[in-house]
Nucleic acid binder design. Structure first.
Lengths: 239, 239
DNA sequence: GCCCTAGTTTATACATCGTACAAATTTCTG
DNA sequence: CAGAAATTTGTACGATGTATAAACTAGGGC
């Protein structure tokens, strides 16, 4: 009576738990993308009637949210705060790890972006980010803002890349994808979009680890400049 | 025979067209979010059997893609290249316009992020962005990369904000949302996430026009620094 | 050691979705 | 004025999320 919320499963068959459901959900996500993460699919993979899932989660949204939390739990937070490496390198490693992990399950990003990102693992990640940006010399408030910008850039990049991947059947090698995009750009653009055509080679290379890192470096450059409140040059909000 | 692809509708009732379908789709998007954009819903709103939609679009995905194109067609591209204002101000105005437009239809961003963004309007937007970044003094290649970073930051920010909005029923005023998030953070974080709790006020202000502009300014700062290929400080790819 | 209760699982069911197929209807063309 | 072609619809199938009530299994009190 004292701790009835901690009891596990006094029910009929002990074969089932939140973790098994999430295992199945993650497995479906890896195999068939976000669209394959379905209540009935999960139940089938565990060998259970669809409604059994509703004992552990109030609905599909809750499963998705818990799945996001599980994905976040896999990122290596300890490496983020190891002071043996410079803070830039740590942030870059984190961003690359996120990119690799999320792109390996196609469609995982859409779950992340549609979720609230307020679970314990999401908060833990934010906490570590604040620490890193404090190492970079930012004030606590600026560190908070900067970490949000960092997350925004990382997730936004990954989402845009994932969108390209999902629309092209089986994931081809990166070189081939670049070539495909290059052809598309130059063909359609030609005379109507001269600048686009001129830099088609560069634009086709969007979907590239290199472009991801290029942008990340620039974003971090902007985030760690001196002068927090005022803007060094150009018009801030309205002249 | 010469131009049979240009023929419109020699069929039965002339009452129907791509535009009407997209009108209905956009209306549904505004009213009920991305989830409400459904083939049957569109058909019902136009007063037509669901299958009639398939005459003009091969499937739901095509409708969504065309809807994205329509949304992009509403952004004011001319203001982007008017040299009477400085380039920073133009980019800021575009970002704010995108944010307002996309947040007004809840769920529009998810469509944008899941689409390929390779229609004529998307290309036109990219072309203009290249022009603006050329005004900012970037080389063509850097302008291409920079415009992609710009789009990434804008869409990523808006997507994260939209996710928060969708999970909180009717959209409350911005102040109230900030308060809600503040309570959530301080309650859950307290001792386990000290930095998060300390800057809870700043973090709760994430969902704010101010934070959006703060980040945009920093991103643009980083994008328009001199030194295109080499990285001014910190480790670039790997030491 | 046994029954009762509480939590678990299932069966069935309903509403909704995307979309395939063939028949019917209407407009354009010759 | 017909024939043809394109459009629209009726019907249908499979899949989805989830509500409701019944069946079942395990643990606790006597």
């Amino acid at each position: 009576m004292t701790e009835m919320s901690q009891r596990r499963r006094p029910g009929p068959r002990g074969t089932l738990s939140d973790q098994m459901i999430l295992d199945a959900a993650q497995s479906l996500l890896s195999d068939g993308g976000a669209r394959a993460v379905t209540i009935r699919g999960i139940a089938a993979r565990v060998g259970v009637a669809p409604n059994a899932v509703y004992t552990y989660f109030p609905g599909k949204a809750a499963v998705q949210q818990a799945l996001v939390e599980r994905l976040l739990s896999e990122v290596d937070l300890d490496r983020l705060t190891e002071r043996t490496h410079p803070w830039r390198q740590r942030l870059q490693a984190l961003a690359l790890e996120l990119r690799t992990d999320l792109l390996s399950h196609p469609g995982a990003v859409s779950l992340l972006l549609s979720g609230r990102m307020d679970g314990p693992n999401a908060l833990a990640l934010r906490e570590r980010l604040l620490e890193v940006f404090a190492d970079a010399g930012l004030t606590p408030d600026d560190a908070a803002r900067a970490s949000h910008v960092f997350v925004t850039y990382a997730l936004g990049s990954i989402a845009l890349e994932a969108a390209q991947l999902e629309h092209s059947g089986p994931p081809p090698p990166e070189d081939e994808r670049v070539a495909t995009r290059l052809v598309g750009f130059t063909a359609a653009a030609s005379d109507r979009y001269p600048r686009t055509a001129a830099t088609a080679a560069a634009m086709a290379r969007y979907i590239t680890t290199e472009q991801f890192l290029w942008g990340l470096t620039r974003v971090l450059d902007g985030l760690t400049r001196q002068g927090s409140a005022a803007h060094p040059r150009g018009g801030p909000t309205r002249p």
